[in-house]
Amino acid sequence: MKQSEGGTLYLQIHSQVLDEVKFLLDTGSSLTLLTPETFNKLSANEVVEVGFVNARLANGHIKKVKTYLLAEFALSDACTFHDVRVAVLPRSNNILGMALLSKAGTLHISMNPPTLKLDNCDSTDTSVIPPV
C-alpha cells in the first residue's frame, strides 16, 4: 500500500490479470469502481450485467452508473474474491469500496508503514499486502 502526500491510501494490485494497477482504498464508499481499462482486463473472466446504481461522486453529484458482477476479483495471486459487484466509471480512479473489502472479514489498516491486512482473504488465516 502507498500513501499520497495528502494521506490518501492506494493499493497497488499485482495478480495474473492485473499488474501494477492502482486502487484508492475508500472506506467511505460502498461501491468498487473501475476504470474502463481495468474493467476490460477483468472482464476476460465471467461477467454479468446486473443493472444500474446511483453513485454519489466525490464532488457531491449523483451519477447513474452500470454495475456488473465479476465471477472473480483478485487483489493478489493469494487473495481472490468471488461474485464481486463493480461499477464502471470513465475518467475516474479505480476505487476499492467496502462491499468488496467486507468480503475479507476483518481488515486492519496500519499507517506506519502503510499496510492492509485482510483476515479472511482467500481461505487463509492472514493475508498481508505490504507497501509498494
Score class of each variant (00 low, 15 high):
residue 27 T to G: 02
residue 57 L to P: 05
residue 39 F to M: 08
residue 48 V to S: 10
residue 33 L to K: 03
residue 41 K to C: 01
residue 67 T to E: 09
residue 108 H to M: 14
residue 121 C to D: 08
residue 33 L to N: 02
residue 131 P to E: 11
residue 43 S to K: 10
residue 39 F to T: 01
residue 106 T to F: 08
residue 87 A to R: 00
residue 26 D to T: 10
residue 42 L to M: 12
residue 97 G to P: 05
residue 90 P to M: 08
residue 119 D to N: 08
residue 73 F to Y: 14
residue 40 N to W: 07
residue 47 V to D: 14
residue 57 L to S: 12
residue 54 N to Q: 09
residue 13 I to S: 01
residue 2 K to M: 10
residue 17 V to S: 13
residue 44 A to C: 03
residue 111 M to A: 03
residue 100 L to I: 03
residue 11 L to D: 03
residue 36 P to G: 06
residue 60 G to Q: 06
residue 106 T to A: 15
residue 107 L to N: 00
residue 93 N to I: 05
residue 23 F to P: 01
residue 7 G to T: 07
residue 51 G to D: 01
residue 76 S to P: 02
residue 26 D to Q: 00
residue 101 L to G: 04
residue 2 K to W: 12
residue 6 G to H: 06
residue 58 A to C: 12
residue 35 T to P: 12
residue 117 K to E: 11
residue 40 N to Y: 14
residue 6 G to I: 03
residue 67 T to H: 04
residue 97 G to I: 00
residue 117 K to G: 08
residue 24 L to F: 10
residue 65 V to T: 06
residue 45 N to T: 02
residue 110 S to R: 07
residue 70 L to T: 02
residue 102 S to Q: 13
residue 59 N to T: 05
residue 39 F to C: 04
residue 65 V to F: 07
residue 2 K to A: 09
residue 81 F to W: 09
residue 126 T to P: 01
residue 95 I to P: 06
residue 122 D to N: 15
residue 57 L to W: 09
residue 59 N to S: 04
residue 127 S to M: 14
residue 99 A to K: 13
residue 52 F to I: 10
residue 96 L to E: 02
residue 14 H to L: 15
residue 29 S to C: 05
residue 49 E to D: 06
residue 57 L to T: 12
residue 41 K to Q: 15
residue 21 V to T: 08
residue 20 E to G: 14
residue 73 F to P: 03
residue 105 G to Q: 09
residue 77 D to K: 12
residue 98 M to H: 04
residue 113 P to V: 02
residue 97 G to W: 00
residue 94 N to S: 00
residue 130 P to Q: 05
residue 35 T to Q: 03
residue 85 R to P: 01
residue 40 N to I: 07
residue 48 V to K: 15
residue 49 E to G: 08
residue 33 L to G: 11
residue 21 V to W: 07
residue 59 N to A: 05
residue 50 V to E: 15
residue 123 S to N: 08
residue 109 I to R: 02
residue 110 S to F: 03
residue 3 Q to A: 09
residue 58 A to F: 14
residue 121 C to R: 01
residue 23 F to Q: 00
residue 50 V to C: 14
residue 25 L to T: 02
residue 75 L to W: 06
residue 96 L to T: 00
residue 90 P to H: 14
residue 126 T to L: 09
residue 67 T to K: 06
residue 90 P to K: 09
residue 98 M to L: 11
residue 127 S to W: 05
residue 37 E to G: 08
residue 90 P to S: 11
residue 63 K to L: 08
residue 41 K to P: 01
residue 100 L to S: 00
residue 37 E to L: 13
residue 49 E to Y: 15
residue 56 R to P: 01
residue 45 N to D: 15
residue 130 P to T: 00
residue 5 E to P: 00
residue 63 K to M: 13
residue 109 I to M: 15
residue 69 L to C: 09
residue 40 N to E: 13
residue 62 I to N: 13
residue 59 N to D: 15
residue 92 S to R: 03
residue 115 T to H: 01
residue 38 T to M: 07
residue 45 N to R: 08
residue 26 D to C: 07
residue 71 A to C: 09
residue 70 L to Q: 03
residue 115 T to E: 13
residue 107 L to D: 00
residue 46 E to V: 09
residue 127 S to R: 01
